[in-house]
Design a protein around this nucleic acid. Structure first.
Lengths: 373, 373
DNA sequence: GCATTTATTAACGGCCTTTATATATTTCTC
DNA sequence: GAGAAATATATAAAGGCCGTTAATAAATGC
């Protein structure tokens, strides 16, 4: 009644109709929590088994799929590394279709029960379903109309979007940005991409909003793909500087030195993060090299768009406890005020969950088309 | 009928009601263009005299006001330089109220006929009506709730916004960005501000979206206020480089040299533009110094937001015929693809017209509240 | 006068509201 | 602890608003 502004009899009529059609089910025993006197109210819930949606994350390094019911509960999930990193897009889509079939059987769900699918790809997607050419990541992707990627095996409506765009949708749905209308997600993977949500709406521009190539123009940033692979970079920076003998920690006793077994060239990102967690000043010195560059990127985005929150997603999210204080400090130096930084809690599932969310939106939209109630 | 999806009898009923209430008037003689046979249709038009709105541009250097009828036709206008550039905000608002009274008498419109007012200020405005502190431009502005700026003289609803935000609204209403949903206006005045419209909606963020301070981080840009005063800068750059003897045109025969009467230090922006219009290569060399920096700013904005169009507004708009080809060339060097550049045709009235537009929106919105037809 | 187009009136119907009544449950009371 | 009162909801009925379609009237060109 509150949501629709309709009166109780009308709402009940609609609920009965939905019940008859099978879209909702009536809860049997509201007794447990019937604290008030009076005739108990009937309780309805979305009949989650009435339909399903599929989410796909066609990543650069791996494939993720999941099946969700209409309530958004994941009923089956599957992830696999690509056998060959240089696989072409058509081959990857073929593998995705095979994996889809397996997820369906695993969950015991008929293909006809799936109402829609969503797919994340690591490239900007134009409204016509074609990706903006980015051959380096997924060869042949731009040549396909991705909306047809599951045909002819499955004829569900398929919503395809940029992984960063779907990540921001996921963060607003089930992540750290719930109830935040102005938020930017920085998705770091093989590359760096931004998902921009302003005023509660996803910003797509001509399709490639949120691309980060431009940031090479920002002083002290350099190649943005290196920021994308922030974690990889942490190790590389540490190793390089160690070899050059520039940092004191290689010469002195430090947690970082202990973690790498005394072999500075073997330092990787995890070691840097772990050492920083123990408060090792040497690790923080390494961290600063990478966070300073990231902070400059954030400063540009934050000043231009003035969002309430910026979310770190992808690889670096797990190290948020270390990275965010460091980034905060760098940003304070660049900018008097900056938005709240947060680390994603969706552990690599953000684009996948975003794909589920847009598929659910599509499913509900098509229901409303049929049922103008 | 087309706009509302209602049937003819219903539309007629509503029109008659609006006629009775005085909001629309019936056209007397549609005879001139009654080319078809059959009973002639009745024609209605918004009764523009039914109400008025006021637009105010509280600029850094001057005050502009105009009175518009409900059709958006300007019925009276007024502009004046501030007597004292360092005048405080309360004093400026007092002057604005006096000028408002004069515009009303000039047009012969009662204060009670004004339904709403809009005001542009050269600073970000938060939703609570307070400007973000920017003392350097308008001392004391941030301390006031600007929504009350016309009280107690006039008790109209007053919509206050950033000049760049209102400029983008104006460009979409009556400027070069009509029917463009994704557009960024770069408003150059004393400072540089961006008005960002994406998906047909103005992007405000926490209030200060579109600020340009961050651009000092972009390589080769330097202080962004210098880009804001692009025209002033053109003269300064030319003069400085001339004095340093760095440019060939000071030593050789050129149109630019002729225009300044042989005194290079006297070169100003207008001379550079005029010489460039005649194809003077020396003038283009000076231009490039300024356009290269602006191009970098545009590249950052364009890549991050991917708009369909970027509009140059404010001072440089008049020199668009020279600046845009030059900027296009610089951008081609930075970026493979970039959005269409256009120069504003609103000759310094963009924020003012935007203020009128938001006031009209407010007026119509309040009408719909009263008249749920 | 006829065709054409629109205005105007009237009848009808859907959707939702309000009102009234019935029902299921808790709580009070003896 | 049984029955009455209180409470909250379900259900049915009546009514009204808003818009539709259909039918009729009116104004114009040919």
């Amino acid at each position: 009644m509150e949501a629709t502004g309709l009166s109780r009899p009308t709402v009940l009529t609609v609920c009965d109709e939905l019940l008859r059609l099978g879209w909702v089910s009536e809860m049997e025993s509201p007794s447990g929590l019937a604290l008030r006197s009076g005739r108990p109210s009937r309780r309805f819930a979305l009949n989650s088994a009435a339909g399903y949606v599929l989410g796909i994350d066609l990543g650069a390094t791996k494939l993720q799929l999941c099946l969700s019911d209409l309530a958004g509960t994941i009923v089956a999930e599957r992830a696999e590394q690509w056998r060959d990193e240089h696989l072409g897009a058509p081959e990857r889509l073929l593998i995705a279709r095979q994996a889809t079939l397996e997820v369906l059987t695993q969950a015991g769900v008929e293909a006809s029960s799936v109402m829609a699918a969503g797919m994340a790809v690591p490239a900007p997607v134009r409204p016509d379903g074609h990706a903006v050419a980015l051959e380096s990541y997924l060869p042949g992707l731009a040549a396909l109309d991705l909306r047809l990627a599951l045909r002819p095996d499955f004829d569900w409506p398929l919503i395809v979007d940029n992984d960063a765009n779907l990540a921001v949708i996921a963060e607003r749905w089930r992540g750290v940005a719930q109830d935040v209308d102005d938020v930017v997600v920085l998705l770091s993977g093989e590359r760096l991409g931004a998902g921009i949500c302003l005023g509660g709406q996803l910003i797509r521009g001509g399709g490639s909003a949120g691309e980060m190539r431009f940031l090479e123009l920002v002083e002290g940033v350099g190649n943005t793909d290196a920021i994308g692979g922030m974690c990889r970079e942490l190790g590389a920076v540490a190793a390089a500087e160690t070899l050059a003998g520039e940092r004191p920690w290689s010469a002195h006793d430090s947690e970082l030195l202990r973690l790498c077994g005394g072999i500075p060239a073997a330092v990787d990102a995890e070691m840097v993060i772990n050492a920083a967690r123990k408060g090792d000043p040497a690790a923080y010195e390494v961290l600063e090299v990478v966070t300073e560059r990231t902070a400059r990127v954030i400063a540009v985005v934050a000043t231009l768009l003035d969002p309430q929150m910026i979310v770190l997603s992808g690889g670096p999210a797990g190290a948020g406890d270390v990275l965010i204080p460091s980034l905060d400090e760098e940003l304070d130096g660049l900018n008097s005020a900056h938005p709240r930084l947060a680390a994603s809690i969706l552990v690599g599932h953000a684009p996948l969950l975003g794909a589920v969310r847009v598929a659910l939106d599509q499913a509900f939209a098509s229901l409303l088309d049929l049922n103008p109630a």
